[in-house]
């Protein structure tokens, strides 16, 4: 089968994925009891916050690198 043009997953946006990988692994950033938020020590609420960072990064990368499949392209 012939490819119309070479495909690739390369995109500068992919670098964004490094942020949520690195943040939760730098323990000095969040290994502390204070400041507390709603009674949660910083150690816990900061790691919960990192989940949101992860969601934001993967969502952004998905949006920016989205390639409509052939089927979707025909529908449009």
């Amino acid at each position: 089968m012939t490819e119309p043009k070479p495909r690739s997953d390369r995109s500068p946006w992919n670098w964004l994925l490094l942020i949520p990988v690195a943040l939760p692994l730098i323990t000095p950033l969040f290994n502390s009891d204070t400041p507390r938020l709603w009674g949660f020590p910083a150690f816990y609420w900061l790691q919960f916050a990192f989940i949101l960072v992860g969601v934001a990064s993967t969502t952004l990368v998905y949006r920016m690198t989205h390639r409509p499949s052939l089927r979707e392209a025909i529908d449009e």
């Binding site: 992919n14 994925l17 939760p24 790691q47 990192f50 993967t58 990368v61």
Partner: peptide
């Protein structure tokens, strides 16, 4: 928690 945060960007 960190384990299940980093797994998704790594395997994306």
């Amino acid at each position: 928690v960190p384990y299940t945060i980093i797994v998704y960007p790594i395997f994306f």
